[in-house]
């Protein structure tokens, strides 16, 4: 009987002491969290993708609350909603949010370009790129092992016939695929109907590009001539379009003999 009572007493005393100590400690050593930062963090989607340039959502929220940054529109996954919510919490008029989407700037699937080798190595773009700059005939093109698809948390990227493609409906423009691509062919572009993007990264001369791939930009300058707003330039035998100047008339797309200019828009924005 005595032993049981003693056991109960000892255990309860230790338990109560530990509980008291913990509750006192939690009051005495409470760390004040910035209310603004907490509110902002709640308004963010919590994807922790890092596309804002800070260490996760809490990092961005803290930076906004401390005034380290004044840009309320950096969160790609949150989009307009998050930008507006943050602007309201901070009591500022935030900059407009431009929805973006990631785009694979290459059209070289195995129908239009060939493999230059039979590759039996590690099946990642990164490894293949280290050996002879990839397995395709074009040294600038998509390798097609899907390093980008592996890092995408939203299932927006599929690899078919040796070419990655991104579903703009699922893409939140977190930019992880942009970093994962060893060929740097993925970029974030404004996801509007009008904006055109050149879907090729080949800086080879036209004849070399054409030999490697029948869908590549050959630097023929026709798009430059067609553009009335001076938005298209060609350097290194590769066309590029300035999204600031582009008005979305689509004349460059119409004249491109290689059909490598296109626009990207998610279905719901159209």
């Amino acid at each position: 009987m005595n032993a049981i009572v003693l056991t109960v007493i000892i255990l309860s005393v230790i338990g109560v002491l530990a509980g008291l100590l913990l509750s006192v400690a939690s009051i005495v050593m409470a760390v004040k969290k910035d209310e603004k930062a907490e509110k902002i963090e709640a308004a963010l989607p919590g994807a922790n993708c890092g596309s804002c340039g800070f260490s996760g959502c809490s990092g961005y929220a803290a930076a906004l609350a401390d005034g380290q940054t004044e840009d309320t529109n950096l969160c790609s996954p949150g989009g307009e909603q998050a930008a507006a919510a943050i602007a309201e919490i901070l009591g500022v008029t935030g900059g407009g949010f431009v929805r973006k989407t990631a785009v694979v700037r290459c059209r070289g699937n195995w129908d239009v370009t060939d493999m230059k080798m039979e590759y039996k190595g590690l099946a990642t773009c990164f490894a293949a790129n280290q050996q002879h700059a990839g397995i395709g005939a074009c040294r600038f093109g998509c390798i097609g092992f899907g390093d980008c698809a592996a890092v995408c948390e939203y299932g927006a990227i599929t690899v078919e016939n040796g070419l990655a493609s991104i579903d703009p409906d699922k893409c939140v423009a977190c930019g992880k695929c942009v970093q994962a691509c060893p060929k740097s062919i993925i970029a974030l572009v404004p996801a509007a109907d009008e904006d055109r993007t050149v879907l090729c990264r080949s800086a080879d001369k036209g004849a070399v590009t054409r030999k490697a791939c029948s869908a590549g930009c050959i630097g023929c300058m026709q798009c430059v001539k067609a553009c009335e707003h001076g938005a298209v330039t060609v350097s290194n035998f590769l066309a590029s379009i300035d999204p600031e100047k582009c008005v979305g008339c689509g004349k460059c797309e119409a004249v491109c003999p290689q059909h490598c200019i296109a626009s990207f828009a998610p279905a719901q924005v159209k």
């Binding site: 000892i10 230790i14 530990a18």
Partner: peptide, 8 residues
Amino acid sequence: VFILIIAA
């Protein structure tokens, strides 16, 4: 007792 103490 040890579990109690370690957790606290």
